[in-house]
């Protein structure tokens, strides 16, 4: 236990069940982005998985939204300390997108419009753990929350759920993405409170 803060009672504990350590509950949907919000017209949207051999699998918006989609309800946890419970999304499972992708690489770099990147092990994207989401709460995903489509990996801190995602690149070695190179944890498990390098 840490140093007792004289006169600090804490207010939110009753309304915050089952949160990862150091998180608090919010009803809002705060925004965390490194720069301006890009506006991506749907007729210019595409999503590409590039394997370690350079083979590309690309979907345009019509092809992507014609894929089988899932309704997803999950808790999300931002490294800036807020958690939001029971968020509802619609998106395409990465299992579906990887169906015809042949790869022996274990790591993935997600790329987004604007140059943002984040690294994830492939095994964290498969087996029903991750999606490319394009609806939130029954509505098209708002640009400031990553629309038209974002990665959704709810079991990791939310910066891993890259907004405006436009591609996944397979890698043999794990390399740090944008926030990871700026001092954030390379994996980011909220239940282990892996916020920063060394946590």
């Amino acid at each position: 236990m840490g140093i007792i803060s004289r006169g600090f009672g804490g207010r939110r504990r009753d309304s915050a069940p089952d949160l990862p350590p150091g998180q608090y509950l919010t009803q809002d949907f705060p925004v965390l982005s490194a720069g301006p919000t890009p506006r991506i017209p749907l007729d210019r949207w595409s999503f590409t998985i590039t394997t370690e051999t350079g083979r590309k699998h690309t979907w345009d918006w019509a092809e992507f939204t014609a894929l089988p989609a899932e309704e997803i309800t999950r808790d999300i946890h931002c490294v800036t300390k807020w958690s939001k419970l029971g968020t509802t999304w619609k998106g395409v499972s990465l299992d579906t997108l990887f169906e015809d992708v042949e790869t022996a690489a274990d790591y993935v770099m997600a790329h987004s419009k604007g140059g943002y990147t984040t690294n994830v092990p492939l095994q964290d994207l498969l087996d029903g753990q991750a999606w490319i989401a394009y609806e939130f709460d029954g509505e098209p995903l708002d640009p400031e929350h990553g629309g038209p489509a974002r990665l959704l990996i709810p079991h990791l801190y939310f910066w891993k759920s890259a907004k405006w995602v436009n591609g996944l690149e397979m890698m043999h070695e794990d390399e740090p993405g944008f926030w990871e190179a700026a001092g954030y944890h390379t994996y980011g498990d909220p239940w282990l409170e892996q916020r920063y390098q060394g946590d």
Binding site: T26, D28, P30, L32, S33, A34, G35, T37, E144
Partner: peptide, 29 residues
Amino acid sequence: TSFVETAADILVALGHDPSKVRTERFGGG
């Protein structure tokens, strides 16, 4: 957030390179 979204959108519309516009938004409490 709403302030940053507005200001950053205007800056990009005025011709600033989006990669030169760094933002920090806050919310929650």
